[in-house]
Amino acid sequence: MIPARLTYNIYKPCACKNKKALQVITMDKKEEILKLLEGDARLTAAEIAKAVGLSEEEVDKAIAELEKSGVIRKYKTVINWEKLGREKVAALIDVKITPEREHGYDAIAERIMRFPEVKNLYLVSGMYDLSVLVEGNTMKEVATFVAEKLAPLPQVTSTTTHFILKKYKEDGDMLYDGEELRRLAVSP
């Protein structure tokens, strides 16, 4: 289910009432809309419409469909919390699991992912089975979560906790200002 959008500061549907027949929106156009929103979720329908060559109504309709079908999961903001001085503690935890008959890893994974402390959860190949990213306010909070919630689960045979010391890049965005465009203001 998609949480309600904060319509005042993210992608805004157009206010047009004119719901005339809309053409079928091609996969290419949908992909273009998604790329634009992925880069900047605050673009308005009007802005997107002009950039992809559709009407505002068509863009609204396409986005509504993409939301409904779950292609668009939600609209988020990439935040460098460190810059604000509000540091969170995160740890990557390698978890070894004994898989269960009939369920494999799914049952235990579903159990683990429900904890709000768990930010990311992947089943991986190699030396261990689940890779869990846990976030908390303090180191102690994270450690307690591992000791009291994660490690005691009967299917979990071992955990190795790696605290994250510095974040360089997250979800494809570099969290530093080292690179900038340095163009002349006017050039031939």
Binding site: R183, L184, A185, V186, S187, P188
Partner: peptide
């Protein structure tokens, strides 16, 4: 024109050929 632009602040430049 480049010299003119260099003296104005807060410019959005659509004058760049790169």
């Amino acid at each position: 024109f480049f010299d003119l632009v260099a003296n104005v602040e807060g410019v959005i430049s659509l004058g760049v050929g790169e």
